[in-house]
Write a protein that binds this DNA or RNA. Sequence first.
DNA 1: GTTCCGCATGAATCGATAG
DNA 2: ACTATCGATTCATGCGGAA
Lengths: 288, 288
Amino acid sequence: MTIDTFSALEVDKIIQGDSLTVLRSLPDSCINFIFTSPPYADNRKKTYKGIPIKEYVTWFLPISSELKRVLKADGTFILNIKERTEDGERQTYVLELILEMRKQGWLWTEEYIWHKKNCYPGRWPNRFRDAWERCLQFNKQKNFKMYQEAVMVPIGDWSKKRLAKLSETDRIRDVSKVGSGFGKNVSNWLGKRFVYPTNVLHLSTECANRGHSASFPYSLPAWFIRLFTQEEDIVLDPFIGSGTSAIACLDLNRHYVGIEAMESYTNLARESVNNWKAGHNGHSKKLI
Amino acid sequence: MTIDTFSALEVDKIIQGDSLTVLRSLPDSCINFIFTSPPYADNRKKTYKGIPIKEYVTWFLPISSELKRVLKADGTFILNIKERTEDGERQTYVLELILEMRKQGWLWTEEYIWHKKNCYPGRWPNRFRDAWERCLQFNKQKNFKMYQEAVMVPIGDWSKKRLAKLSETDRIRDVSKVGSGFGKNVSNWLGKRFVYPTNVLHLSTECANRGHSASFPYSLPAWFIRLFTQEEDIVLDPFIGSGTSAIACLDLNRHYVGIEAMESYTNLARESVNNWKAGHNGHSKKLI
DNA sequence: GTTCCGCATGAATCGATAG
DNA sequence: ACTATCGATTCATGCGGAA
């Protein structure tokens, strides 16, 4: 990254505004990694958090085009999404989106499965509970940065527990141990036998009553951020919601750029960031 | 099922021949359930087990059309498939296949994830081990046969604590919803030992215990056969390979129709069937 | 500081009812 | 007929307070 980039790109901020508009104001090739969980399709509510199914692809494509522009050549874009059912069918807009994004020049590199261990309850005569979501990986070129060692897990049964419990409690423990960084911490871990994970992630959704609901658990962006970035890298979340990705960046010593359209969510995200800083003795991350 | 159907459809057989050709000889609407794991796409090997990627959709569509014809109106088709990577990208033929099959009139009802707990080992610089496959559910109409009780799983350990004491809030919460449903609700939970599964299946890739290698484990077709059929129903596998689906049918007292193009696999499947019958004291399943 | 235990919650989905 | 809203269904988990 160059000085020029930094002079044009302000990092560690939650920007309030329309995602497409804000993205257009960002410089080319300034972002190391993009993680986002965009608003899901919803025919019923025509609010911010509900894009009609039929308009979904059309709505997203200009955004993915800008994301491709701002992403560095060796960067990665992870899109967390799951299609809705309508009229008893899985809708196909996510499939269409993948095909259209490839026409934009994106490579569809991989599809990770987020297995939601505590999925929503319910019972229906024609289907079971939906316990998984897609984490689609897109890249600009075949060679991209990937730091597999940062997400290695201990071998054996408790490795699954370890991966599953990478949430709030874990965060505190890690911070209290080391200030130098999460990846280092993990690699120094007690056992010497570590194994690479697979493309299936077993994470629970957080369900505590904290005044707001995170649409995805802290550990989801954290896992991908560790996998695709190094410290001081810049992470973009164009639909940051309540700020989960930003908190993950703070913990992992990455820079973040968050965009959020709704004022209430923006305030919530900024508050989360301030709480994090307060919890770390007022020491905010050193800015370049 | 009518007598006519049976006179035209011979069940409990492994038919050797080209799948499309054989399918065309079957009567309309005679099959209760279709499960198959078709030959994977592969550009390099031009063998039976390798359909070129670019031809895959074109190759499969006439087959899926015939499958739709032979399936009963309330039947289900489960397609176990996973796209290959080529040039560092996930290929898109499965996505395209879903879209094209919908144009044929199929409903894309659901996508189950088969999580392969002991997936193939290996390491690559740009991806992790692939630990999941798609099990795509297609139907002819919104209302289809589904026997959810047949695949219920033991309830989690949490229930022991949870049900040990009935707290005040349980009562309040129930009352707030349905008013009169409290007693009934609690009594249901107290006796409950099994719950419904989700759309994520955790199965190992272990094969049938006969020393024959199968591309998918016995438990995968068995699970779906139990879910979508009753005893005496007819199950079709148009790419039956070494006969795993047939063995599952024998165990579950379902009729099977298997199709296999290669003579060697056909012999293997027939041998598996014979071994099964020998292991059951020569009593083959009663034929109608 | 640990462990234990109660409890509210969740990117859900269907079918019935209402406009 | 067609769309919008609402109630019913249901289970594993993290969190917070208690022991």
